[in-house]
Design a protein around this nucleic acid. Structure first.
Length: 755
DNA sequence: AGCACGCCGACT
DNA sequence: GTCGGCGTGCTC
């Protein structure tokens, strides 16, 4: 390509920049020329008055901008693309699908270090060895320099050298080493980290478990698709051995010289999962979670892309990790809400993962005991292969589930007397009891008995939650805190009292009621600090009789073999949730916590307190199980045209002045409706608008929140309408742009909830 | 989103 | 006199 010099001026660089603007920007090639520029490299470019680091998307010969107003790219940061082709393509699709800026999408996808322009260094490890093996201690090491002498002696016994981490663990500090290096006695060699190509070791540390026939069948079915795209729904009841299936699938993937990407929910069981993986596999495993700092994240990313790790385990954002040799994707607990990002780029890691699997032509496994309705629907439509694990290892029978009528009952800290009796029975048999309540703190409301005033958050439409440890009022929506007042804020009488019960209050009550049985509370407050949660789990596993009280955290993942009674205190909040997914969530929760009851050899019992024991849907769940329950919900969703039968997007607006959000959405609605009419997309088979409506919690953190729902029985018209609307908001319509400037707006495709 | 520019009010 | 409030415009 020697004739670039001639045509140089007709080439333009399309660059994605970290700005919310949904377009790419064209630049002239840098002064250094266009050679060695390929999509995926980083460029430093002038952007208005500042300099930004962008990603080169494409090199074109056309531009919509008058070429005289184009600027030159200033700097080329990479020789090789740091964003591989398929990740770039993935991000383009994501940006397009979620109507988000490509530059910001790329920023979400890559480690912070990269978007800040840090150089990509070859990953190395340091090998230290003696410069020359002398028989005697060299004279330039002082006789009293004990540490240096020890280090020298050590290295003399290992003339091939020792790696720095090894030396550290043997008590040799880097100061000692650099002191010796200065004296010319030792030298440091930078070795490239080995890739899996050159790693001679075997893949496994320990032998795999023997699979039961069901598991074996599942493994075999998925292996048959080993080299091509196929989505599997692995629906396995709690305790049916899904993880072992994952492990064996990964083993086959590794043996084929490929990598596995495993996504787990956010509050996930990272330490346990990781432990099990590390026990099994001898290949390097990389874990990506919110606890990592920037450089650790960057390291993990590099290991994945350089084929230095065989298994990549991570939460939501790990779905963007590029793989050198992709072979398998696993989404554990695929129904979990934490796979959906709830701000900025509102993506679903599960859905992106499926797209990725298709793009790279590899199988993907969605595992869950309680699959989402979307996934069940796709399985029924034969877009996914539906595989099941119905056998519970070493378990006689599934737990019995009872809907306990609490209508007219006087509750003590949220517990009915019937439930208290059951607790006594189980404790007398030396067993453990698990109480589930999705509300932390002492009580959700501080109420005045005299005038009905309640302590509210000044910044949100919400009551303040009473906490006792330490004592204060706390808003769970914006983190506002204040001391507990002694007198009513309205009538000034001293008759304030807590209404309702959260985990702290229930803990208090149980301690008094079932003394001396220990009560272990597990919620976000009781598990602050690094190893608190692990310690509490350890206590539970001692197996002594105990009552566990907790939130969501208790519903996920962990096995408690001695728990035989599980109680759900506030099922009704799920029954009457303002959100259309409320019931689905409740069903998943009940099924998941029921899976916690009676593992091992002991029979389990589940009690669900409700004011509506006759509720047909709850009864169908209890007597016929999750599948039937899900079918009922699916039928309802179909009637209402809700997902998975209809596709929805949500415009969200936050504003400081109450009416401004509504105004913007009203204007937007007018424009969209005109557009729909012009394009024959109105009517029930086209696109329908609902709203603007205030969000379920209208004010939050001093922002008023409005939303407008856009829905359609087909994906394409929905997409078209939203693309049009976004374009208008972003500059197409002057009036709208003017309104939009005063507030914050965003689009949420496939919203999880309307909160 | 940033950032600059520009035009009005209350300060050492 | 000027420091700084935020409305407006622009980013290849």
């Amino acid at each position: 390509m020697g004739n670039y010099a001639k045509t140089e001026s007709t080439h333009y660089l399309q660059v994605a920049l970290p700005t919310p603007l949904r377009r790419v920007f064209d630049y002239l090639p840098p002064k250094s020329g266009i050679d060695a520029l390929s999509p995926g490299i980083r460029l430093k470019v002038p952007f208005g008055p500042r300099k930004l680091i962008g990603i080169l998307i494409a090199i074109t010969t056309k531009t919509d901008i008058p070429p005289c107003s184009l600027k030159h790219a200033e700097h080329v940061l990479d020789e090789q693309p740091i964003i591989p082709r398929d990740l770039l393509d993935l991000c383009r699709w994501v940006a397009h699908y979620y109507h988000h800026s490509l530059g910001e999408t790329l920023s979400t996808a890559i480690p912070v270090a990269l978007r800040q322009g840090k150089p990509v260094a070859q990953q190395t490890r340091k090998l230290w060895r003696l410069t020359y093996p002398a028989a005697e201690v060299p004279s330039n090491i002082a006789r009293n320099a004990k540490l240096q002498l020890a280090a020298w002696q050590l290295l003399k016994q290992h003339l091939k050298g020792l790696h720095e981490p090894m030396l550290k663990s043997l008590g040799v500090s880097s100061q000692t080493l650099s002191a010796l290096e200065k004296k010319g006695e030792v030298e440091c060699i930078l070795e490239e980290l080995p890739t899996l190509h050159t790693m001679p070791q075997s893949i496994l540390h320990e032998a795999p478990l023997t699979l039961n026939p069901e598991q074996a069948h599942v493994v075999q079915q998925i292996r048959q698709a080993a080299q091509q795209f196929q989505t599997f729904l692995l629906q396995g009841i709690t305790g049916s051995g899904k993880t072992e299936v994952y492990l064996q699938l990964i083993e086959h993937t590794l043996k084929a010289g490929r990598q596995a990407l495993v996504l787990i929910p956010e509050i996930g069981l990272t330490p346990q999962t990781l432990h099990r993986f590390e026990q099994r596999f001898a290949v390097p495993i990389v874990v990506i979670h919110s606890g990592l700092n920037d450089s650790e994240r960057f390291l993990a990313w590099q290991k994945a892309i350089d084929y230095r790790a065989g298994i990549i385990i991570g939460t939501r954002s790990a779905v963007f990790t590029p793989l050198a040799k992709p072979g398998l994707i696993i989404i554990d607990e695929e129904h979990d809400a934490s796979y959906k990002q709830q701000d900025s780029l509102r993506y679903s890691a599960r859905d992106i993962a499926i797209y990725r699997a298709r793009q790279t032509n590899i199988p993907i496994v969605l595992g869950s005991a309680t699959p989402s309705l979307e996934t069940i629907h796709n399985a029924k439509a034969h877009r996914y292969r539906h595989l099941r694990l119905n056998q519970r290892a070493g378990m006689a029978k599934p737990p019995s589930i009872e809907l306990l009528n609490i209508r007219g009952e006087t509750l003590q800290a949220g517990l009915s007397s019937a439930l208290q009796q059951k607790i006594t029975q189980h404790l007398e048999k030396d067993q453990q009891v698990l109480i589930f309540i999705n509300r932390r703190g002492y009580a959700p409301t501080l109420l005045c008995h005299e005038c009905g005033w309640a302590a509210d958050c000044p910044d949100c439409d919400a009551h303040l939650t009473i906490h006792r440890q330490p004592a204060h009022l706390h808003c769970h929506h914006c983190d506002y805190q204040q001391p507990i007042p002694e007198r009513c804020g309205r009538c000034n009488t001293a008759s304030l009292f807590p209404v309702g019960a959260g985990t702290e209050r229930i803990e208090d009550f149980l301690i008094g009621q079932f003394d001396p049985t220990p009560v272990i509370r597990i919620d976000r407050d009781s598990t602050r600090g690094k190893s608190r949660l692990q310690q509490l789990f350890k206590d539970i596993h001692q197996g002594e009789p105990a009552i566990l009280v907790g939130t969501q955290m208790l519903a996920k993942g962990h096995h408690f073999p001695k728990v035989t009674l599980v109680a759900i205190l506030d099922a009704d909040s799920g029954l009457f949730s303002s959100d259309f997914r409320g019931l689905e969530r409740l069903g998943q929760l009940i099924t998941q916590v029921a899976g916690r009851a009676g593992r091992g050899t002991l029979a389990g019992e589940v009690v669900i307190q409700t004011h509506h024991p006759e509720s047909p849907i709850l009864n169908s769940l209890v007597t016929e199980g999750y599948d039937t329950f899900a079918n009922t919900l699916l039928a309802e969703r179909e009637k209402l045209g809700l997902p998975p039968y209809g596709y929805i997007g949500l415009f969200r607006v936050e504003c400081k002045k109450h009416e401004e959000g509504e105004q913007l959405l009203l204007q937007l609605r007018e424009l969209i409706n005109q557009f729909l009419q012009h394009n024959n997309l109105n009517g029930p088979l086209g696109v329908t608008l609902l709203g603007p409506l205030p969000a379920p919690m209208e004010k939050r953190q001093n922002w008023y929140r409005w939303q407008m729902l856009v829905s359609s029985p087909a994906r394409q018209p929905l997409h078209t309408a939203i693309a049009f609307a976004v374009h208008q908001l972003e500059g197409g319509n002057q009036m709208l742009v003017k309104l939009a400037r005063k507030l914050r707006w965003s689009v949420d495709i496939d919203p999880q909830d309307m909160m």
